[in-house]
Amino acid sequence: DAPDEFRDPLMDTLMTDPVRLPSGTIMDRSIILRHLLNSPTDPFNRQTLTESMLEPVPELKEQIQAWMR
């Protein structure tokens, strides 16, 4: 099983494109984008959230890719 820090906190699946929300939570980009289609909010604190506020986490993405090899 993947380490917890590699798993999306909402869907508990392996992240492939991790992004940091303004709240500091790291999620998979595809999952948070799907959530934003229904509700333009951070799913953990209900603060306003837009796609432009998502910050890529390239170092975590590299760690996940290395773990998958």
Rank of each mutant, 00 (worst) to 15 (best):
D1Q: 14
D1K: 15
D1E: 14
A2E: 07
A2Y: 15
A2M: 14
P3N: 05
P3S: 05
P3H: 05
P3K: 06
D4H: 15
E5F: 12
E5C: 15
E5D: 10
F6C: 06
R7L: 12
R7G: 02
R7M: 11
R7K: 13
D8Q: 02
D8H: 04
D8L: 04
D8M: 03
P9E: 04
L10T: 09
L10S: 05
L10G: 02
M11A: 13
M11Q: 10
D12V: 06
D12L: 14
T13Y: 07
T13N: 07
L14T: 06
L14Q: 03
L14P: 06
L14R: 03
L14A: 03
L14E: 01
M15R: 00
M15P: 01
D17H: 06
P18Y: 03
P18F: 03
V19R: 02
V19G: 02
R20L: 08
R20F: 04
L21F: 03
L21E: 00
L21H: 00
S23K: 02
S23P: 00
S23W: 06
G24H: 04
G24Y: 03
T25M: 15
T25P: 07
I26D: 00
I26K: 01
M27A: 05
M27W: 05
M27K: 00
D28E: 11
D28V: 04
R29D: 01
R29N: 04
R29I: 06
S30E: 12
S30Q: 13
I31E: 05
I31A: 09
I31T: 12
L33W: 05
L33I: 11
L36S: 00
L36W: 03
L37G: 09
L37Y: 10
N38A: 12
N38L: 14
N38Q: 13
S39R: 07
S39N: 11
P40A: 13
P40N: 13
T41Q: 08
T41R: 08
P43V: 03
F44C: 06
F44R: 02
F44L: 05
F44I: 06
N45T: 15
R46D: 14
R46K: 14
Q47D: 12
Q47I: 09
T48N: 12
T48E: 13
L49T: 04
L49F: 04
T50G: 06
T50E: 10
E51I: 14
M53G: 05
M53I: 05
M53S: 06
M53H: 06
E55L: 11
E55Y: 08
P56G: 10
P56R: 08
E59K: 11
E59L: 11
E59Y: 12
E59R: 10
E59F: 11
L60E: 01
L60G: 01
L60I: 06
K61E: 06
E62S: 12
Q63D: 07
Q63L: 15
Q63I: 11
Q63Y: 08
I64M: 04
I64R: 00
I64C: 06
I64A: 00
Q65R: 12
Q65M: 15
Q65I: 14
A66D: 13
A66K: 13
A66G: 08
A66R: 14
W67A: 04
M68F: 11
M68C: 12
M68W: 13
R69C: 13
R69D: 12
R69G: 11
